[in-house]
Design a protein around this nucleic acid. Structure first.
Lengths: 153, 153
DNA sequence: ATATTAAATGATAATAATTCTTAAATAAGA
DNA sequence: TCTTATTTAAGAATTATTATCATTTAATAT
């Protein structure tokens, strides 16, 4: 899934390798549910019960600054994070507050082409994010968590 | 700008007409800066000093439930609101945390066409939101507030 | 391997945003 | 006008996030 292991990613970005940072990065990479800080902390504590809340916050902020992860904006007040850095979009559902990755290269290309041709006056575009809001029409037979619709076409 | 006055909008949605609700809706409609709850409260208090913080929160939530306004998700932790219900997109800038409306019918049509043709399996799409992240390249001569780039083409 | 040093962590306090609670006030309809 | 269900005000409570600072630790040079 990820080109390099967490340890190398940290080194590449000039960060000290600590067990806490490894735990945060590996946890985030292993989840496709765009967890909140609180969820990440909870998962880590199963294996590493002593990590402090503030540490997780600080680590996540460092990672965002370095561009290793992204903040995903949810409708509610909680920050969510995404370890995937390839261009992709997000499916949002109000029902459960779930955020699911949506990979669609054709769509990404179409949007990039569009804005390559049409400049927005007075604005330098750096990133295009699409939020697709709706509901899952599932028959509900698969597991609760991890709506892993990685629609890579 | 808006088809009907605030009073009628409230009645149409089965809400009692109170001065507080009128103030919130009119304030929000008069601003194109996607204010936070705190900003809205501040503006209202200039004319109506007694409104309670909790009241503004409750009113905004009621409006969102009724579909009269929308939540706009910012990268940070504060909720922002938008009184415009026509399809449009948003320009986000990290510099100042500004959120600006971006109207582009061609773009909206292109996205609608795209998803009319291509269904996302297991997902019923209700709304398409585009966040255009970047920086304003302004020469900085115009007023601080209200980057009202309503690029209606 | 050890010492050095800058950086990271843990614990906790502080702040900020939002929600909850309840009594008092008020809008809408009889 | 009177009645009643809603709404508001005020402040307490909760939750998310950030800041502080003493202690610990990773990386580097010895």
């Amino acid at each position: 899934m990820f080109e390099e292991d967490a340890r190398n990613t940290l080194i590449k970005h000039g960060l000290k390798v600590t067990p806490q940072r490894l735990a945060v990065l590996e946890t985030l990479r292993s989840m496709n549910t765009h967890p909140s800080t609180d969820t990440i902390t909870g998962v880590i504590r199963e294996k590493y019960p002593h990590i402090a809340t503030g540490t997780v916050y600080k680590i996540l902020e460092t990672f965002v600054e370095k561009g290793m992860i992204k903040r995903v904006t949810s409708d509610r007040d909680i920050m969510r994070f995404d370890a995937r850095t390839e261009p992709h979009h997000h499916l949002y559902t109000a029902q459960s507050g779930q955020i699911t990755d949506y990979f669609d290269d054709e769509l990404t290309r179409m949007l990039e082409d569009y804005f390559r041709k049409k400049q927005i006056p007075g604005f330098h575009l750096e990133e295009i994010r699409l939020q697709l809001v709706g509901n899952f029409t599932d028959t509900g037979t698969d597991d609760e968590q991890g709506h892993d619709s990685r629609h890579h076409k």
